[in-house]
C-alpha cells in the first residue's frame, strides 16, 4: 500500500499518510497535530487547509465552508482529500475558515472521486 509524506508548513511538522486515509485522519492516526479536527466528514469546516504542492483525490465537501472557486484553487477540507503524491499544505482552520485570501498555489491538481 502506498503512503505519502504530508508537510504542514505552519509548524514544519510532517507525517506519512496511507493512500486510503484522508489527510486529516492520517495526521490523527499517528498522534500528530496541526490541523484542527472536527467531524472528519466534510461538514463542519474546521479542518480547512490550502494545499500548496502535490495532488490528491477529493470528495464532496460543504459549500458553507469551501466555495467552488476555493476548491478549484486548492483550499479544501483536509478530511475530504486523500493524497496521491506527497503534499504540502497551510492550515486555514476554524478561525479563518471562511477566508482563503492567499495566492493561488502552483502545481496543485485534484481529482474528484465518489
Amino acid at each position: 500500500m502506498a503512503a505519502y509524506t504530508i508537510v504542514i508548513e505552519d509548524t514544519g511538522e510532517s507525517y506519512r499518510c496511507v493512500e486510503y486515509r484522508s489527510v486529516l485522519e492520517g495526521m490523527e492516526a499517528l498522534g500528530k497535530k496541526g490541523i484542527p479536527v472536527g467531524c472528519r466528514q466534510g461538514g463542519c469546516g474546521v479542518c480547512k487547509v490550502r494545499v500548496t504542492a502535490g495532488s490528491y483525490t477529493k470528495r464532496v465537501m460543504s459549500r458553507e465552508h469551501v466555495s467552488a472557486e476555493e476548491e478549484a484553487a486548492g483550499c479544501v477540507l483536509s478530511c475530504r482529500i486523500k493524497p496521491i503524491t506527497d503534499l504540502r499544505l497551510a492550515v486555514i482552520g476554524p478561525m479563518r475558515k471562511n477566508v482563503c485570501w492567499m495566492a493561488e498555489p502552483a502545481g496543485v491538481s485534484s481529482v474528484l472521486s465518489t
Binding site: G38, C39, R40, Q41, G42, G43, C44, S62
Partner: peptide, 8 residues
C-alpha cells in the same frame, strides 16, 4: 459521533 456529512 458524526453522520457521513459531518452532522453530529
Amino acid at each position: 459521533f458524526f453522520d457521513p456529512s459531518g452532522n453530529r
